[in-house]
């Protein structure tokens, strides 16, 4: 399949089940809501080394948030519910509770519950106050600034982690510019996060390594400088590859995000140095979710 001179390879992204949750973080200003959100989703690019994958899903206008202040929705994914129950209160406690004027609310209902205030209330040292209105309980934890307000808990969802797109460019600059265009388009698709820096991974990995104890190592098949030394999947005109990893709340969400990203890259076309779109997989035997590029773009 060739679109605007860009080859869409007959490949697929192989993704895995993850369990995730959404939180709504608010603050007096959009600036501080985003600071809290980015801090709490920091160092969360890959479960391999971070224990979770997290990112900003979208900004939320004040009129749509639980307290009428500017907000940010974040998604956090872990490999299992136990992991998620561990990382979420820790990250809120260290990064949101501490952030000026912030509050933290449930961003989804249903599924197994994940503690917010249920765990963080103890910071109040006995001065915390619960307030239940309707079927929802909020906690007010006194802090030096005033009060930290949060919901008791949030829901969770069985999601998909590890959707991906590989952008094969004629130069480093062109591959990155295409990746930036893709990230901008993909960030508008709800239900997904792109957990790597700026949404982009320049160091895609393969499973395993020649070294003991390494679970992942550089994906030499896509490293342009290794062409002469290893089997390569790169056409001769490709000088640089950027990857975009997608975690989403459902197969459909990741699929829509994948399509949005590819469309943005294809729009740039061959004239902008984009040679091909590929995807990372492990032969289809490890992950149950397969995002077939040509079917998605059909």
């Amino acid at each position: 399949m060739i679109l605007n001179g860009v080859e869409i390879r007959d490949s697929f992204a192989e993704a895995f089940p993850m369990v995730g949750t959404r939180l709504i973080i608010t603050a007096d200003t959009a600036k501080w809501a985003m600071i809290a959100a980015k801090t709490m989703t920091g160092f969360a690019t890959s479960v391999i080394g971070c224990g979770c994958e997290a990112g900003v899903e979208r900004e939320i206008p004040a009129e749509e948030t639980p307290d009428g202040r500017p907000g940010v929705a974040v998604l956090i994914f872990a490999m299992d519910i136990k992991g998620l129950k561990s990382v979420v209160p820790n990250r809120i406690g260290q990064c949101v509770l501490t952030s000026p004027t912030s509050a933290c609310y449930a961003g989804m209902e249903g599924g197994e519950s994940i503690s917010i205030g249920k765990a963080l209330k103890y910071f109040g040292d006995g001065w915390q106050i619960a307030k239940k209105v309707g079927d929802k309980r909020i906690w007010r934890v006194p802090v030096m600034e005033g009060e930290f307000v949060c919901d008791h808990e949030t829901g969770s969802v069985s999601g998909v982690g590890g959707g991906n797109v590989l952008i094969l460019g004629a130069s480093r600059r062109e591959a990155l510019e295409a990746a930036e265009a893709a990230v901008e388009a993909m960030s508008k698709v709800p239900g997904n996060i792109l957990p790597f820096p700026g949404g982009v991974v320049r160091s895609g990995s393969k499973v395993g390594s020649k070294y003991k104890g390494m679970f992942a190592s550089t994906n030499n098949f896509y490293c342009p400088t290794l062409r002469a030394q290893t089997e390569t999947k790169l056409p001769p005109e490709v000088a640089s590859v950027q990857e975009i990893v997608i975690d989403g709340v459902s197969f459909d969400a990741v699929s829509a995000c994948t399509r949005a990203g590819i469309e943005a890259v294809v729009k740039l076309g061959r004239d902008k140095g984009i040679i091909a779109i590929d995807a990372g997989n492990y032969g289809g035997n490890l992950g149950p979710f397969h995002f077939k590029l040509r079917e998605i773009m059909a």
């Binding site: 307290d67 009428g68 004027t101 209105v133 909020i138 007010r140 009060e147």
Partner: peptide, 17 residues
């Protein structure tokens, strides 16, 4: 006297309040 975020939540979750 205080500016309480909690009040913002209460009035949005309870029509009566």
């Amino acid at each position: 006297e205080h500016d309480l975020v909690m009040l913002r939540v209460l009035v949005r979750r309870s029509a009566e309040l």
